[in-house]
Design a protein around this nucleic acid. Structure first.
Length: 401
RNA sequence: GCGUGGUUGGCGGAGUGGUCAAACGCAUCAGACUGUAAAUCUGACGGCUUUAUGCCUACGGGGGUUCGAGUCCCUCACCACGCACCA
C-alpha cells in the first residue's frame, strides 16, 4: 500500500484548486489528514467513445488524490448505461449494446491512462452487482428515494413542462448510481457540477443502507472551443486527448481569450500563483495569442511529450502566422493524372461533394501550390505529383502519383 | 380506447394548390480584416452537369384527386395535448 501524504498545504490545494464545490469540506479535510487510505469513487459513463479535455477535468482531480496515496475506484456504468443518465437531457438516451460499451471502455481506459496510473486503480463494472442482485435490490433501492425528490431536479422539471416523457427507469438512475457507492464503500465521490444531484443521491442511498455518507467534490464544467457551450462531442467543440499533437494545438488556439485562465486552471498543472501571473500578463495588454501558444504547448506536452509540444508550436507559427505549408502533409495517391479540380476535392474528402467543391473554388478557397484556382471551368488539371492542395486555412493534402 | 393538433434542411421555424431547393434565425464553410481567434463585413450553405431564368432528388411512409401538391383527400407510422378510470 502506498504511503498517505497528509501535508496540509497540499491537501488544501487539492480541495481548492479547480474545484467548484466540496460537500462536507471539513469532514473531507479531516479524513484526508487522518492517514487512512480513502476510497475515491468516479463513475464513468461508457457512452463516450473518446475522452476530451472536459472529461479530463475530474480525472486530473482524481490523479491528485491518487498522488496523495488514496485509492481511486473507477466504476464503469455498463449497467446504468443501459438506462441512460438523464442529466442535462431533454429526451431519453438510446440504450447501448454490450458490444458498444465494451469498445467504448477499451478506448476510454487507453485514454485515461494518459492521466491516471491505472495500475493503482480499482476498476469495477456495475453490472457485477446489478445483474447478480436483481429485483430484490431494485425494491430496496427504490425505497431510498421519493418521487418528489427525484422530480425536484431541474432537468426533469423542464421535461415535464415541455411535455417530454420521463421513463420510470430514468427516475431510478440516480439511485442506481448511488448504490455503486454502497457497493464499493466510497468515502469520496468526484464528478462534474452537472453530476451534483446524482452525487448527493449517493449520500442518501448510503444512509439508507446505514453506511457513512461519502463526501462530494465537484469540478467546474469546461466550455468547448466556442467558449459558450459545455465541451461535448455532439456539439463538435471538443478537443480529444487522443488527438495528434498538432490537432490538439490547433484547437486549443481556437479557444476564446477569456477562456485562457480557465484552461490553464483545469487542463494543466499550473499553480494558482502561475495562473495569477498569467492574468496579470493578460491585463497588461500582452497579446493573448502568445499566452495561448504557451497553453497549447503545455497541453500537448501533457498528452504527448514536451518535445511534441514545442514542435507543434513551431508548426503552428509556420502555418498560421507565416502562412507557409505544413511540414507533414497527408499524402493522397491519385488514381489518374488528369482530373478536374472539383472531382479531386470530392474524391479526397476535402469537399463534401462536387457541388461543394465548386462553391469552394468559386469563393477562392482552393489553392494548388499556393496559387488560388478560382476557375470552375478549368476542367482538367494535369498533376505531376507533389502538388499541395489547400482548402481554406487548415486543410492540406499532397498529391502523389 | 375516443377526440384534436402535429411530423418540413444539422437545429429552430415560415410556407395551406403553381414563381419553393424552401422566408427568417442559429450552427457550419469560404473570402476580407486580424493576433490563430473574437467582433464586423461579403458570399455560400441538397445533388449533378452542358454554369443555365439548366436537370434531378427532397417537405414522416404509402396511395389518390389535379394540367400542377409541404399545401386537398384516404391510409399507415410516430409524437403531443385533451377526454375516458379515480368522481
Amino acid at each position: 500500500m502506498s504511503k498517505i501524504i497528509t501535508d496540509e498545504k497540499i491537501i488544501d490545494e487539492v480541495l481548492f484548486r479547480g474545484v467548484e464545490d466540496v460537500i462536507e469540506k471539513e469532514h473531507l479535510k479531516n479524513a484526508l489528514l487522518s492517514k487512512k487510505q480513502l476510497r475515491i469513487k468516479f463513475g464513468v459513463d461508457p457512452t463516450a467513445p473518446d475522452l476530451h479535455l472536459g472529461h479530463s477535468v475530474p480525472l486530473r482531480k482524481l490523479k491528485q488524490f491518487q498522488d496523495l496515496g488514496h485509492k481511486v475506484v473507477l466504476i464503469i456504468g455498463d449497467f446504468t448505461a443501459k438506462i441512460g443518465d438523464p442529466t442535462g437531457r431533454n429526451e431519453m438516451r438510446k440504450p447501448l449494446t454490450d458490444k458498444e460499451i465494451k469498445k467504448n471502455m477499451e478506448n476510454y481506459l487507453e485514454h485515461a491512462e494518459k492521466i491516471l496510473d491505472l495500475k493503482k486503480v480499482e476498476v469495477h463494472y456495475n453490472s457485477e452487482w446489478f445483474l447478480k442482485e436483481g429485483v430484490e435490490t431494485m425494491f430496496q433501492l427504490s425505497m431510498a428515494g421519493s418521487i418528489q425528490q427525484i422530480l425536484r431536479r431541474s432537468d426533469f422539471k423542464k421535461r415535464i413542462k415541455e411535455g417530454n416523457d420521463i421513463t420510470l427507469t430514468e427516475t431510478l438512475y440516480p439511485l442506481f448510481q448511488g448504490y455503486d457507492s454502497v457497493k464499493i464503500k466510497a468515502d469520496v465521490e468526484i464528478g462534474g457540477t452537472d453530476q451534483l444531484f446524482n452525487l448527493l443521491m449517493g449520500r442518501r442511498v448510503q444512509r439508507h443502507y446505514n453506511m457513512p455518507e461519502q463526501d462530494i467534490l465537484t469540478t467546474p464544467l469546461l466550455e468547448g472551443t466556442d467558449g459558450v457551450k459545455k465541451m461535448s462531442k455532439s456539439i463538435g467543440n471538443y478537443i480529444s486527448i487522443g488527438e495528434k499533437p498538432f490537432s490538439i494545438f490547433e484547437k486549443v488556439m481556437l479557444i476564446q481569450d477569456f477562456q485562457i485562465e480557465k484552461y490553464f486552471l483545469l487542463c494543466t498543472e499550473a499553480t494558482q500563483n502561475e495562473i495569477k501571473k498569467i492574468s496579470e500578463r493578460l491585463k497588461s495588454g500582452e497579446n493573448p495569442r502568445d499566452i495561448k501558444l504557451e497553453l497549447a504547448e503545455t497541453i500537448v506536452g501533457i498528452y504527448h511529450s514536451k518535445k511534441a509540444g514545442e514542435k507543434a508550436k513551431e508548426e503552428f507559427i509556420k502555418v498560421f502566422s507565416k502562412k507557409e505549408i505544413p511540414t507533414d502533409v497527408e499524402e493522397y495517391k491519385l488514381s489518374k493524372k488528369e482530373i478536374s479540380l472539383a472531382e479531386l476535392l470530392a474524391e479526397t474528402k476535402l469537399a463534401k461533394s462536387k457541388s461543394d467543391a465548386r462553391r469552394l473554388i468559386e469563393q477562392g478557397g482552393v489553392k494548388i501550390n499556393d496559387e488560388v484556382h478560382k476557375d470552375t471551368k478549368e476542367n482538367v488539371v494535369l498533376f505531376k505529383g507533389g502538388e499541395i492542395i489547400q482548402v481554406g486555412k487548415r486543410r492540406f493534402l499532397k498529391i502523389k502519383i
